[in-house]
Design a protein around this nucleic acid. Structure first.
Length: 413
RNA sequence: GCGGGUGUAGCUCAGUUGGUUAGAGCGCUAGGUUGUGGCUCUAGAGGUCGCCGGUUCGAUCCCGGUCACUCGCCCCA
């Protein structure tokens, strides 16, 4: 084993793994364009402040998972742990409030200092979709429909379920939070150690605790819907009616909460039981207060992100398909070498994939052509060159015939 | 950050109750075929047995630590 190891939690992508990633990103791009989303690519690092201000100063991501460093100019920078904050920052930086509503999709690497596990890397990749400037539930519906469409286009329709909840608007959520603190404080002694911690920092998180001792207490906890005001209730109902109209099945999970602080109203996750402990494959929600928090104009927002590595664990990648032609020069006569080079160049310019081996006799080069999966070989030696022809060999059938050198493109058209 | 499992060739894995030259299959290289791939036959290269330390006459094997991977917790996509 080499002493040159990759950084913990990072991974080299090659061969089939690379194809899986590309398949996911390309499928996402195709579907997102059907929904009239436009691509955005923001920097993979931002001023640390961009994330600290938006993700909440009690969230695990901010308090212990960020890759933060000081650059040579003395700036505090952070490798992005998620995409939404960067998109929101770009929205403000570029004055996009003029163009509302706006729909963005993007993808790329994210970084979190976590203990690596199946489907959990320190550098991981997400696909991401955001709608800005639409306070109506139509945006929630569209964004969930897009997620659902992407997952089914990836062939995962029967492996995932949609869980849905509403956190209510800010007023409702604060009211609920207060009720929860009252309730859980009364049961404080019986709670797990983790949950006692959560009581201080993020009481909503106790709701999705897996600790056995928490479960009966959580079961009897007040439901969030009881704290909804009329507007919150109507908003959630509208989202559900929209999903029903689209025939998108979901399960309301009143204990579904989001880890980052900027969410309100709709929260949703697509989950699976197929990839071990990491059940969430795609998660998102509404973040109406985020852009204002960052110093921009009050702007509604909703979006989601999905982990490409997690999707890749479930996806069947399309087979590698390419029609490759091998150009095989015979011998080391300079005129032959030059003619082979020119032939390969002509074919590439005409849009054909061509491999020309760098060395070896005909046997070696044919072997390489076979290994690369070439469908045909063009064999060119001194006698062919003198006659102005080339041998065309079909590598699947073994049939071989000669062809005028200047008729090759026509034969492949 | 916490708990369990695993580290032997490029890959998948044997093996040594502690003993001198650590194996297989696949892959790779070369040759049988100096102008023809797949199949086949032959030969070869490739390992500080993850790393550091301890016990021992002797450690890849036992013990401790460490690093990495992995499963779960936490968290999240």
């Amino acid at each position: 084993m080499s002493s040159l190891q990759p950084v913990r939690g990072t991974h080299d992508l090659m061969g089939e793994d690379a194809r899986r990633h590309r398949h996911i990103v390309e499928t996402f791009r195709e579907v997102a364009e059907l929904y009239a989303f436009r691509e955005i690519a923001t920097p993979i690092f931002e001023f640390t402040d961009v994330f600290e201000r938006t993700l909440g100063d009690t969230s695990d991501v901010v308090t212990k998972e960020m890759y933060t460093f000081v650059d040579r100019g003395g700036e505090q920078l952070t490798l992005r742990p998620e995409m939404t904050a960067g998109v929101a920052r770009a929205f403000i930086s570029n004055g996009l409030a003029q163009d509302l509503p706006i729909k963005f999709f993007g993808h790329g690497p994210m970084f979190r200092y976590e203990r690596p596990q199946k489907g959990r890397m320190r550098q991981f990749h997400q696909i991401d979709a955001e709608i800005l400037g639409v306070p109506e539930p139509q945006a929630d519906i569209e964004v969930i429909a897009l997620a659902h469409h992407v997952l089914s286009a990836l062939g995962l329709g029967d492996k995932i379920t949609l869980e849905l909840n509403s956190l209510g608007d800010v007023e409702s959520r604060l009211a609920y939070r207060a009720r929860l603190i009252d309730y859980f404080s009364a049961h404080r002694a019986a709670l797990s150690e983790d949950s006692r911690m959560r009581l201080e920092r993020n009481p909503l998180r106790i709701l999705d605790s897996k600790a056995a001792e928490d479960r009966p207490i959580v079961e009897a906890a007040p439901a969030i819907a009881e704290s909804f005001n009329a507007a919150s209730r109507e908003f959630f109902d509208a989202v559900r009616r929209g999903l029903d109209a689209l025939g998108i099945g979901y399960a309301v999970n009143p204990r579904l909460v989001r880890g980052l602080d900027y969410y309100s109203h709709t929260a949703f996750e697509f989950t699976t039981t197929h990839i071990g402990a990491q059940g969430t494959v795609l998660g998102g929600g509404r973040y109406d207060g985020l852009i204002e928090t960052m110093g921009g104009p009050a702007t509604a927002g909703i979006g989601w992100a999905a982990g490409i590595e997690r999707l890749a664990l479930m996806v069947t990648p399309p087979p590698e398909s390419r029609d490759l032609i091998a150009v095989v020069p015979v011998g080391d006569d300079p005129a032959v070498q030059a003619a082979a080079l020119a032939l390969a160049n002509r074919l590439r310019r005409a849009g054909h994939a061509v491999d020309q081996g760098y060395r070896g006799n005909v046997g070696k080069r044919m072997k390489r052509a076979d290994k690369l999966g070439a469908s045909r070989a063009l064999i060119l030696g001194e006698s062919e060159l003198a006659a102005g022809i080339v041998q065309l060999r079909d590598l699947a059938t073994g049939e071989q015939r000669s062809l005028p050198l200047d008729a090759v493109e026509a034969a492949f058209a």
